[in-house]
Nucleic acid binder design. Structure first.
Lengths: 143, 143
DNA sequence: CACTCCTAGTTCGTAATACATACAGTTGGG
DNA sequence: CCCAACTGTATGTATTACGAACTAGGAGTG
């Protein structure tokens, strides 16, 4: 068959293009790892946001850049799997804190570690200096 | 635990985390630009894949990492908007070449330029040397 | 040619995603 | 107390994504 994609990766003169491809790679890794744990990428991302501790719906919508109605549904589905719980906020009775269950903690950690490990693997070709430089440069763009 | 001495505003000690955040940023930019042009991110991504020229369904599924049934639907919806056409391959009568229409070319270019421009804007804080270094480092990881 | 296997895409059914809109309960300021 | 603002849900719609089953066109072998 026709093989057109030979000269494809080597000519990387463009920073935005490199950024887009990096995003594509990360999305792919996230999708693979999620699937390994029987989660959708969105569900896995949600779980990862909760590892550090319970988060309210409003904060979650900001973190994941979703409308609140979308977040409601997402939390619904993850809650239905017993990975997450809605706990009433004691101070504000309108609000919930979304909290990982015991199973949820386990799965969230495994997913998070899976993503990190795979990304580390992809970055393994870098020297220590290059790693530090890349981290710093990404940090600068992300500010 | 590894702790680099690089201190930016945020505590960014971790390369994988930086990569994930970069991906999140790019996804966001893509979503915003797409929305400005009345496209979904997936539709915009498809259009961008076609800027260089017509592509068959099989190649598209590989490029976008989708199942062929998903790609069928995606092309359907974009074709229904008149942005893309299925053209029979002359050599293989099972195959199609997916091709941008005139409107499609216009919109694809605008979307592509929009994404590039916004990412350039985000990277504007980098010096020329830093830009080159970041591009090269991303390229190395992407291999 | 007949036969078989493979490939290119579609169709269909299902679940998840994402949004806008409309809604209910709560909070806090005047 | 009243009401605007806020927190989150419910509903309806379109899109996304997948797998399985399918059609039809190549491609190789006897």
């Amino acid at each position: 068959m026709l093989r057109t994609s030979v000269n494809y990766n080597r000519t990387m003169t463009d920073l935005p293009t490199a950024m887009v491809r990096m995003a594509h790679l990360v999305n792919h890794v996230f999708a693979e790892v999620s699937r390994d744990h029987d989660l959708t990428p969105q569900q896995a991302q949600l779980m990862c946001q909760l590892i550090a501790g319970p988060v309210g719906m409003g904060e979650l919508t900001r973190l994941m850049r979703l409308e609140k109605s979308s977040m409601s549904g997402l939390v619904d589905r993850v809650e239905r799997r017993g990975l997450v719980e809605r706990v009433r906020d004691t101070c504000d009775r309108r609000a919930y804190r979304i909290e990982l269950t015991e199973d949820g903690v386990r799965l969230a950690n495994k997913s998070h570690e899976g993503v990190i490990a795979e990304l580390e693997r992809r970055a393994a070709s870098l020297t220590d200096e290059e790693r530090d430089a890349l981290t710093a440069l990404l940090g600068k763009v992300l500010d």
